[in-house]
């Protein structure tokens, strides 16, 4: 069995994995990273989205072996020192979740979206999150949350740049 080494939420894991093992199953079943859920089997829902070397990836469509040597951040690794990431806060503030099943993937995808467009319009948030499905919220509050998160993140960055 291939041996891989991955860093997940700051911890390094050396694992022997079947070549067919999906990254999301490595995370959930082997590493206990159950914060990242699975919503489909056709890469449509985005519930399983994580950051793979800084960019969002649907962990159900990546093999664990493909992640060898990668740095992975899941929803569980987002907050630092007990402080939520601004995007987590924004989702809470804007009531952008109900059952919360889509939320980890939404938050990870939203963070990635801001890489390319730090101040997205409503329309670009809607387009940018097309690969993440939510059955509960109707998306309005998610759109609000992402734009709120974006503002807070840029303010934070500005704050950091001026200090």
């Amino acid at each position: 069995m291939p041996r891989i080494s991955v860093t997940v939420d700051g911890i390094r894991y050396d694992e022997e994995v079947e070549p067919r093992l999906l990254l999301v199953h490595l995370l959930r079943d082997r590493l206990g990273k159950t914060g990242t859920p699975i919503g489909c089997d056709t890469s449509n829902c985005g519930a399983c989205t994580v950051l793979l070397d800084g960019r969002s990836a649907k962990s159900c469509s990546v093999l664990a072996v493909q992640a060898d040597g990668c740095d992975i951040v899941t929803i569980e690794g987002l907050s630092t020192g007990g402080t939520w990431h601004p995007m987590q806060r924004a989702f809470h503030e804007e009531h952008a979740l109900q059952c919360g099943y889509c939320t980890p993937g939404m938050i990870m995808a939203a963070i990635d979206l801001l890489h390319d467009d730090p101040d997205p319009s409503e329309e670009s948030v809607r387009e940018g999150l097309e690969g993440n499905l939510c059955r509960c919220t109707g998306y309005c509050t998610i759109v609000r949350a992402v734009r709120r998160g974006a503002r807070e993140m840029s303010q934070k960055q500005e704050g950091a740049a001026t200090s």
Partner: peptide, 9 residues
């Protein structure tokens, strides 16, 4: 929300 946005579900 606290558990849902942090993955402690």
């Amino acid at each position: 929300d606290a558990r849902l946005v942090t993955g402690r579900t």
